[in-house]
Amino acid sequence: MKSSIFCSAVFLFLSSCASINSVSLTPIPSERNKKVRTEKSKIIFLGFNFDNDFVDDAVEDLKKQCPNGQVTGLLTKDENINYFLYFVWKKQITASGFCVSVKDSLNNKTSDAKIATEALLNAKSEQ
């Protein structure tokens, strides 16, 4: 009897439950040689969480892994992992993508920026 209670307590303690909040993806490049990845997480006990600053370094991490390049095909997963009857849970942000050369991407960016600027100016004049 005691051992079965002990086993179920251990099972409860070690079991975890994962749920996904959101997933986002940016356009995937043809050149997919260099993968980059970052993971940021925070353990929260009984819901006591006073800031979400742990996600702030994610972009900086990706920049370090791809200096003088562009990180694209970025898959961002935002998930919750609950441990032991929801007393403890982990918020986890995982971002993975590909580092490509920046040569063409900045030209595209300039033309994209022009299109976006024109669209905004049009929207402003309509207002």
């Binding site: 909040n21 959101s22 994610a58 972009v59 562009q70 990180v71 935002d78």
Partner: peptide
């Protein structure tokens, strides 16, 4: 007493270039 709750995070493309 306030608690922070995170709902959603989304990252966009990251570009670095020595000329910029």
């Amino acid at each position: 007493f306030s608690c922070a709750q995170l709902h959603h995070v989304q990252l966009g493309e990251v570009t670095s270039h020595p000329d910029y």
